[in-house]
Each structure stands twice: as C-alpha cells, then as structure tokens.
C-alpha cells in the first residue's frame, strides 16, 4: 500500500465528453489533480512531463488502443512502473482477463458513476502492492 493519498491522475481518452465528466468527477468530488490527453500517441510524453501517481487508459482509441499503449509504457523506464487502470465499455469476462494479464491494476466499466469514481480509484490505489 502506497504511503501517500492518491492525488495525481493522468487520463488518456479520445472522447471529450467523457474526459470532461471524469475530470469534473475527480477534481470536484475527488479533489485530485487530473491531466487528460486525447491523442494516445502523445500520451507517454504527457505522462513523463506530468508525473502522475496513477494512469487511466481508455481501451478503444484512434491511432493506438489502450492495451498497446500500456505495452509501450512498459518499454519506457520513466513510465514502466505507473499503475494503470482501464476504463472501458468492453464488458466481457474474457476482455477483463486479457487486461489483468497485461498487468492492469484495475478495471472500471463504462458507464461508471462519476459520484463513485474517486472512491473506486482510491480503493484500487490502496490495494496496490
């Protein structure tokens, strides 16, 4: 369990509406600092600059999907150790297992509840090794 309270979140998501809701949820309700990125190809650079405590990835994004982005992160020493939570509309058990196998720290299904989202993330954060 990490020593500090979860505060800095980096979120890669191409849908701007959802970006906005997640940002509002985490900033207003969760009192966290959030950096969002619409272009997955720019995400790694964004992360390196922002230095988040936790990264949230969408699965389906144009240009590069979430799992591929996660693999790319693992290749870079700066981003390799960030815990990653997927937020996805893919709901099947098989897909969830696939993400767990990639080393995802958690999975949040769309639609999620913006009221509960900060607590869900903090729960995952607390359970990290």
């Amino acid at each position: 369990m990490p020593a500090s309270e979860l505060n800095r979140i980096f979120y890669a998501e191409d849908d701007e509406d959802i970006q906005r809701i997640v940002r509002m949820s985490l900033e207003r309700i969760g009192k966290m600092t959030v950096q969002v990125e619409s272009d997955p190809l720019k995400a790694i650079d964004g992360m390196i600059e922002f230095k988040p405590e936790l990264v949230m990835l969408d699965w389906m994004m144009p240009g590069m999907d979430g799992p591929t982005l996660l693999k790319a992160m693992r290749q870079r020493p700066e981003t390799a150790s960030y815990p990653v939570v997927f937020i996805t509309a893919k709901a099947s058990m098989k897909e969830h297992e696939e993400l767990a196998a990639l080393g995802a720290a958690g999975i949040i299904s769309k639609p999620f509840s913006p009221k509960d989202l900060p607590n869900q993330l903090r729960e995952i954060w607390r359970n990290l090794p």
Binding site: D17, I18, S25, P111
Partner: peptide, 14 residues
Amino acid sequence: LRTPLTSIIGSLQL
C-alpha cells in the same frame, strides 16, 4: 451505446 450513455448518465449524476 454505452459510450454516449456514459456521458449522459455521468453528466446527470454529477
């Protein structure tokens, strides 16, 4: 269907 619903429900819940 889930993606737009996420935005709709999320907005309203907020």
